[in-house]
Nucleic acid binder design. Structure first.
Lengths: 227, 227
DNA sequence: TTCCCACCCGAACGTTCGTTCGGGAGGAGT
DNA sequence: ACTCCTCCCGAACGAACGTTCGGGTGGGAA
C-alpha cells in the first residue's frame, strides 16, 4: 500500500474502475441495485467475474463510489459557475441550467443517485447525506437570494426548504419522462423551469440574452473541467 | 362480510390479497422489487411461503396489482372531485390537493408506482401505461384550462406537456424528503405548490376560502368512497 | 536472474431466491 | 355419505446470487 490515497471525496488511482462504474451505473439505472448482478457487469465490461474484485471489495462499493463522484462533481460544477455570476436571477438560471446539463450528460449515474442509499452501511449513508446536503444548501442559498432580490414575501426556514425542494422536483422528475423529440429541446426545458419557478406557468417568456450568456458559460466551464 | 367491493377497475374476489399487497408495498417501497423476497412477505403477513401462492401466480403479479389499483384509484378520486368543481383555479387546486392527499394516505403504494414497471411483461407494461396516460391526460386538461382562463400565453402541445410534467415533478418529488415536523403541514405544501405553479415562488399568498372549501370536499369524497 | 506487484482468471463455496409439489383441514352442497 | 372448493402448509427443486480461493500472467525494479 504505497500512497494511502487521501480519499478527499474521490477516486482511488485506478483507471479500470472508471469503466466499471460507467457500466454499473448504466445497468443499475435500468434494473436497480438488486436487479444488477456482478456477472452482468463482468460480461458487459468484458472482464471475468473474479477479476472485478481487483477494483473494489463489495458490490456495495459501486453504489458508494457512484454516489460520491456524482454529488461531488455536481457540487463542484455549480460552485465553478456561481463564482462567475453575481446577479441573483442569473445565478438561479445558471443553477437550473447546470443541473439539467449535468444530468443530461450523466443520465445513468444520476438515476442511480435517485435510487437512494439504503443498501449502504450507516457511515456511508451519512457521508453521502453530507454531500447531498452540501449541494442542497448551495441551492437553498441561491433560491433565498433570488427571492430577496425580487422583494417577494420572504418565507421562513421551512418555507424556503419547501421552495427549494419544489425546484428540485421540477428538475429531477424530468428524467422519468423526458425525450428531446417528444418534449422539445433541453434549453426549452431549462427556460420552462426557470420561468415557472419565477413567475408561474402563465408568465410570458421574456426574450433576453440570459439563455445564451449563461449557456455558453456553463458549456465552457464543463469542457475546461474535463481536462 | 358480503364482499360486494365496488372498487371498479380492480380486484379478484380475494380479501387476503388486500393484506398481502399492503405488506408487499411497504417492503418494496423500502427495499425495491428485487430486494424484497417472498419469504419476507410471508413472514411479514404471518403466512407460509407456499401459502402466498393461493393469491397470486408470480411475484410480478404483486407489482402489477399495486400499479393497477394505485393508478385506478388516483384517477377515480380525481374524477369524482372535478365533477363537483367548475372554476379552473379551484380545479387546479383540487388536483394538487387530491394528489398529495392520496399520496400521503398511500405512501408505500405510491412509492412502488415510482419504481417503474420494467419488471413486468410487455402487455402489462402497456396496460399500466394506459392507466398512467389517462391520469396524465386529465391533469393536462386541467392545466390547459387554467392557463386559458388566466389568459396566459397558451403553450403549444409540447409546452403544455412540459408544464404538466413540471407540476408532476413538484408533487411527486415530495415523497423522497417530506416529513411533517421538519417541513410544515401537508396543507402548507399544497398551497406552496399551487402558488408556485400559478404565480411563481415570490408570489404573496392570497388568503381566501379555497383551501377550506376544496379541502373539505376532497376529505368528504374520500370517506364516501371508502364505504 | 530474481522478486514483486498490478492485473486477470476458472472453479467453486454457501446462501438465498422464485417456484413447485403433494397433501391436509374444514365448511358447503348434493 | 361423498365430493368439491377455499385456504393453508413443509419440504424440496434448480437457478442465480455475492464472494473467495488458488493460481497465472507479464513488465519493471533489484
Amino acid at each position: 500500500m504505497s500512497h494511502g490515497n487521501g480519499n478527499g471525496a474521490v477516486v482511488p488511482g485506478k483507471e479500470g474502475l472508471d469503466e466499471i462504474l460507467r457500466y454499473s451505473a448504466r445497468l443499475m439505472a435500468q434494473r436497480g441495485y438488486h436487479g444488477t448482478s456482478l456477472r452482468d457487469i463482468a460480461s458487459e465490461t468484458g472482464r471475468s467475474l473474479s477479476g472485478l474484485y481487483h477494483y473494489f471489495q463489495t458490490k456495495e462499493d459501486l453504489v458508494y463510489w457512484i454516489n460520491v463522484r456524482g454529488f461531488s462533481a455536481l457540487t463542484k460544477s455549480l460552485e465553478a459557475i456561481l463564482s462567475h455570476l453575481s446577479d441573483p436571477e442569473d445565478r438561479l438560471y445558471a443553477l437550473i441550467f447546470n443541473h439539467l446539463d449535468y444530468f443530461s450528460h450523466h443520465r445513468d449515474e444520476m438515476k442511480v443517485l435517485m435510487l437512494g442509499t439504503h443498501n449502504l452501511t450507516l457511515e456511508r449513508i451519512a457521508e453521502i447525506r453530507r454531500l447531498k446536503d452540501g449541494y442542497t444548501e448551495q441551492c437553498r442559498q441561491v433560491v433565498s437570494d433570488f427571492i430577496a432580490h425580487r422583494g417577494g414575501e420572504l418565507p421562513d426556514a421551512k418555507g424556503l426548504t419547501r421552495a427549494t425542494y419544489l425546484l428540485f422536483g421540477m428538475m429531477n422528475w424530468i428524467f422519468g419522462w423526458y425525450s428531446p423529440q417528444k418534449h422539445g429541446t433541453g434549453r426549452d426545458l431549462t427556460d420552462d423551469i426557470f420561468h415557472t419557478f419565477v413567475d408561474g406557468v402563465c408568465a410570458r417568456r421574456k426574450i433576453d440574452d440570459r439563455r445564451e450568456r449563461v449557456g455558453k458559460l456553463v458549456s465552457g466551464l464543463r469542457k475546461e473541467h474535463h481536462d
